[in-house]
Every structure is written in C-alpha cells, then in structure tokens.
Design a protein around this nucleic acid. Sequence first.
DNA 1: GAATCACGCATTTTT
DNA 2: TGCGTGATTC
Length: 703
Amino acid sequence: MALDLSQLNPQQRAAVLQTEGPVLVLAGAGSGKTRVIAHRVVHLLDKGVPARSVLAVTFTNKAAQEMRDRIARLAGDRARVKGLTVSTFHAFGMRLLREQHARLGLPARFAILDAGDQVALVKRLLRESLQIDDKRFDLPRVVSLLSRRKMGTAPGQPGAPDHEYELCATELLPRYQLGLRAMGAVDFDDLLLVPLKLLRADAQLLESYRNRHRYLLVDEYQDTNETQLQLLELLAGMRRNLCVVGDDDQSIYAWRGAQVRNILQFDKRFPGCAEIFLEQNYRSSANILDAANAVIGKNPARKAKRLWTDRGRGPPLRVVCAPDDEAEAKYVADEIVRVSYEEKIPPREIAVLYRTNAQARPFEEALRLLGVRYRVVGGTSMFDRKEVRDLLAYLRAALNPSDEISLLRIVNVPARGIGDQTVARAQELARGRGATVWEVFSQGAPELSHAAERIAQFAQLVEKYGQRLSGPGFSAAARDLVDEVGLFDEARRSSQSLPAQARRIEAMESLLRQLIDYEKREEQRVSDLRLSGLGLQTSNLSDSPADEEFGSGLLGYLTRLALDSKEADGDAGDSVTLMTLHGAKGLEWRCVFLCGLEEGLLPHSGKGFDGETVEGAINLEEERRLCYVGMTRARERLVLTRAAQRIRRGKAMMRTPSRFLEDIPAELLDTVDLGSPQAAPKEVQEAKAKNFFANMDALLKDP
DNA sequence: GAATCACGCATTTTT
DNA sequence: TGCGTGATTC
C-alpha cells in the first residue's frame, strides 16, 4: 500500500520527501516533473495529511486534469483523493469569488469577460464615454495595458514613445472598472486580484483559507506573475508549506506578465527554502540535449542546469536550409513521409513547430498534397470566429440579459432594423431612467417610435430562449435559436465565397455539436454519480471539476469556456501535429521539426521581421528559451529548418540564419543545403524541377 | 437602416 | 493573402 519510491532517482525522491517548509524544485525539461508532483501528493496522503488540506495549482485546465489523473492513478483508491483541490489559479480565484460574491456586490453568477469581450468593452467606452475614435488605438494593446495597470506592474511613464496609450489607459481604467461593475462581471485579472484584496482585508477569511490549504503545490512556477506570487505568499503564511516546481529556462510568458524573477529569487522571498535540481532527462537523446544545453547556456541569468541522459547519443540533429518557405515546407512534408515509412514513426509522434501561426500555411499545403493527416493546434480558434462569437453572445445574452456586451453585440445581428441610432437612444434612455439597457428593452419604450416594435420582439426572443436555455435540453434549444434567428441564412448571405460560407456554417455547427456532446456527458456524469453513490465502481476514476465549481447546464459550459478557451482539442486520430512553440511546452514527440530558424522569426523581432533584429526591441533571452523549449520536445529526431528567402505580402525577402544555430556545436549537426543542388536528396531535386516546370507552364499559359 | 463595393491594412506568442 | 472597415448608394 505504501508508495514505492525506489523507482525515483535521488533528487526526485528528495523532492517528494521534503514535505515541510518552502521547496523549490528546478525541473529541467523531461526530468519527470509530473511524476514527482504526483508522488509528492500521494506521499502527503500516506503521511496522514487529509486530502482536503492539499492545494495544487496549475495554469491550464488541461494540466490540472492531467495532474488529477496521475494522482488518482498513483493513489489507486478513489476515496483517498476525494477532497483534494487541483485547480488553475483562475478557477481557484473564481471559487473564492463565488463564495464571497454577495459582499462584493457581484451577482452569484457573475460573468467572466474573455479577451474579445474586453476589447468590445474598451471600444464602447472609448466611443461613448471618452468620445475618442476607437480606430486611433490598437484595442488589444489598450486592453493589455489596462491589465498591467491593474496588476500594478506598469507605472505610467510620461514621455515614453507610447505616451498617448498611457494617457488613454489612465482615462479608461476607472471607467472600465465601473463598466465591469455595471455588468456584474469580472475579467481574468479580477479572478486573481479581487481574491487577493479580499484575503488581505479580511483576517478571518484568510485564516480559514490558511487552515484549509495547509500544503501548497504550484506547477510551472516560472509562469507566475506578481499577483499570483502575492496570493501564494498570503496563503502560505507562517506555515510556509509551499512547494513550487518549474524551470526558469522554460519561462516563455513574460509578455503576459509572468516574472522569471519569481523563480530566480524564490530563496529571497522564502529564505531557508530547500532547492532541488532535477537534471536527469528521460526524454531525449544525448545529441539533442547537448544542442539544447548549448543554446540555453548562453543566457546570463539563470539557475544553471545541465541536463544529462543515460540513453544513447542518437542520430545527429539535422539543420536544413531551403531556398524558400515553400521548399522548407515541402522538405518537411517529404521527410515526414520518409520517416514514417523508414523509421516507422507514426504521425501522432511527429510535430512541426514554428514561432508564429502565420507559418503554418505552407506546411498544411505541403502535407495535404502528400495526403498526410495533420492537425493544426491553436491559431485562430473556432471561438475567435465572428459567427461563433455571435452565437455565443446569443447564448450569454439569453441566460443573462444584463450582460450588455453580449446583448448589444447581437441586438442587430442579423440585421433586424435596430441600428446604431436606436441603440444609442436606448442607452440614453437607460441612463436617464437609471436603468439598464435590457430594462429599457424589456419594459418597452415608446420614445423609440418605429423601432419600439422591433425591440419588443427582440426582447421577447431573448426572454423565450432565456427560459429554454437555462434548463435541460439546452443544446436542442440552442439549435432552435440558430434556426429561428436565421444565423445560418445570415452566414450564407454575408459570405462572398462558397468556402467561406461553408467554414462559417461548419464553425457554428461544430459549436452546436459540442453543446450536444457536453449535455450528454453531463447527463452521464450525473448518472455516474448516482451509481457511485450506490457503491458501484464507475469508469472514470478521477473527477473532473464538478458542477459545484462551474455551475451546471449551459451556464457551466460557458463558464468553462471562459476559463479554458481550448476546450477538447478533439484528438483527431493519428495525425501530425502543427503548432507554435508556445503551444508545445509540456509536450513531446519522437520526431520534431523546428522551423523558420531565421533572424527576425526565431528570435522574433516584433514588428515586420524584416531581417535585421533591433537589439533591445525584443526579449532575446525569452526567444532563446523558446528555442530551447522547442528543441527539448524531441525524443529521437530533431530537424531544424530555415529558408534562405521568404515570400511575404507578395515580396521575396532574403533571410539570415538564426543566431541560435551558431550556438550548436558543429559535431552534433548534419547540415543539408537545399539551395545547392548537389547536396539535396534526389527526390527533393526532382520535386524542385517539377515545381520549376509547373511554374514555367503557368507563366507561358498566362503571361 | 441596409447592402454593396473598394480600399487598405496588418500579421507573435494567449492562461 | 484575407480580412475588416468605410464610404457610397439604394
């Protein structure tokens, strides 16, 4: 019954056994981090720590779910892990807010604004409250500035080149906060900030949280921001039972407020902490590790780790220079076919990684041409599409009409004769009456003359579906809504091309399917619970965060969606993965293609990427870490590619090789230059020739 | 108030 | 390349 720790290496074991006081575990890539965390939690349980005293925090819901699974599997007995809290920072904050909503003046079911909603709100405030043309500002940038202000990490700097943005943020911030309040909503930052404030202000509440969560565990600690650090400090209190696990070399979210210094200076904040290095790597071949070490070794401020492995050297890394981006993609696609035939590496064990989503396209085309199954992860997700956002806005507005962002988004979609003028007048009226826009809509307003009738109809529609969507059968109701409102017709009408039309309809269909799926699974969970209540073993060993956390029904779905935009990545069978380097953190494949190793791209140079990188304009250290993360995803084969020339907006631009390539010792590399024909593999030469003649033909036919 | 067309724009990473 | 936005016209 006792946990078997003999399978762990000495450092891993130390990380498991050091249960008291602050502990910093520096877990290099592939060093068995998740394993250690799971063992540590189960070890705590073995020692008699009640499950409900353990709080483990992650950044993503996926990571939380994985951790739950690992712990449950290791603990073996489901009853033992009952009461354990494994949650994201944001979900944790949300739970606290739910508990305390009344004293904060928040409705019990407050809305959570996602990035798109934030932009919409800022846009509205700019126009209506400040009378500023919203085109003058890059709205996402304004939103991120507001976020930094809220977090207290961006003091206004007069005289800075973006002074107008600073001014804008200063004017906007109080109005933005009021706007949130008025809607009974919070944004992502509030999910952390408000709990922090509350715990600071209420000693009793703080005490109860400290008593409940006696053992704290944080994964991916290098990604924490200032607020999260303060929250952890507060919760840890004098007990200081805080174990953080992370890797400063994999800190790639500084642009989002993460502070590497949290992990670098952990010992300053928590003096006397234990520091444990996990450096044995169980993932990659020695060649890959040596190369990755060489790249990351150039970073000045870091907790120097030297990953090692007792596995073999493996094949050398390949560095490929293609004449242009198309050839790069073609080479990668050819290699994928070859590797899956000759080395029997299945597509699911192969990944193509790149810096920016825009790079995905050529790879998609090349793979499609060869009939290779692939899936593109990330990029503009289905939930960023206009029509899906419209549909979601319908659902949200119906459930909660005081969600003004959603309500106003759909009030005239599809066009139903309630234009900007009418909406503006309704808002005016609302302000005059001291009421909300929804109240004006639903109570009727003769002042709105000819539009009054239309508005009454719209309000009726919202009310009707508000009823139907808030109970069981909501997925069917959503479909009816789409039909009744005519969203499909709208998509058909407003698309200029047939494929665009198909994409829009498909996107909405897929959301509807997800809803059906979700409702089914929820029914399943409910009956599972009933079974387990009768003492029957159920299929699912680990509980997913249950309804009490997110709410049930459609509201639960929408809440989950707000906190986890990449719901179900639908594991589409055996296919090659295409994703950005950011998306790849925490994953691994037998064979990895790391593409676009060029100055301006990796390291990325921000605007334009026109070759020469302006030092200081980018965070070179973070770009280096990004490269390191990419390299360490590979188990057996790592191929680094670049293009000598890239077509961008119709113009060809010469590219220089990434400085990171220079840092890798030549003896680890096998260099291929597709630009010089002698060096190119025969198949590639033939393909290039074919491509050349095809282009000639096209030119001759259509001069 | 709605539909159509044309222009012009901008492309990093997202819990 | 595609998209969104704006001006124009009905």
